[in-house]
Write a protein that binds this DNA or RNA. Structure first.
Lengths: 126, 126
DNA sequence: TTATTATATGCTCATATATTCATATGATGA
DNA sequence: TCATCATATGAATATATGAGCATATAATAA
């Protein structure tokens, strides 16, 4: 319930923040909480070196689990577990061909996000 | 040490992967390991709902700690801890004005990444 | 100086998560 | 059918991490 929020009046921090007008303006531009959660979950899925390795590799080419293991020099269960995470997050999709399962990115946004992130990293490395 | 990697020959999975030619092609497009680590660290910094809330808010306006607390309805130490994480990751910067410390994004990439991620989230919500 | 306000930080607990091993499942071919 | 290969999964363990409390620091004003 919002009672008072008279404009511009500086109130004490502990309760309401110092700049109610700024807060109000920012608040009106905030996404719904649910969307923020989904967004942080998306980034969380990128926030692990194994998964980023997987995703970068898949941004080059569809790959089977086995090849991913060789590429990342990691054990098969570790790779499979991370693939499951990525699949549950709807970031990758899979396709079975006989015994082999091929994984690929489920969306073009993913590759764009990764490239943009790398751009940032490289510039920071300066 | 690479000894053999004769072209196209399908080898057994456990050791070398099934498709050595594909692996080689992807491998040549992989960034250095260090960069992948930095990239996953970057995304890790986005991978928490508190931090994403902070970052989205800062993408609208520079804000002081106090206002962020009010905006996110979170306790001050929690917000400060996350701000420290973000600062160490060089994602936000701070500026002191008397007792008040204002935080803002340290780089335009950050806002772009967040918007692009949100685009993805909204489309998936379909 | 002391008091007050805004922010930072050390410590702890609880929880989340990544990897490993062992094993299960699924597909193929003998 | 059985054996083999590729992948998936359950359980256990180790590590990472977020939030809370208490308290420290920094700036200002009385």
């Amino acid at each position: 319930m919002k009672t008072d929020s008279s404009q511009g009046l500086i109130e004490t921090c502990a309760v309401k923040g110092i700049h109610p007008d700024v807060i109000a303006r920012v608040e009106s531009n905030m996404p719904e909480a649910v969307h923020l959660y989904e967004l942080s979950d998306l980034f969380k899925a990128f926030g692990d070196s194994t998964r980023i390795g997987i995703l970068w590799a898949l941004s080059i080419s569809e790959l089977c689990v086995c090849d991913l293991c060789a590429l990342l020099k990691m054990k098969q269960p570790a790779v499979s577990h991370q693939l499951r995470n990525l699949k549950q997050a709807r970031i990758v999709k899979s396709r079975r061909e006989g015994k082999v399962v091929f994984y690929s990115l489920d969306d073009e946004h993913v590759a764009r996000l990764i490239r943009l992130g790398m751009e940032h990293v490289r510039e920071q490395g300066r």
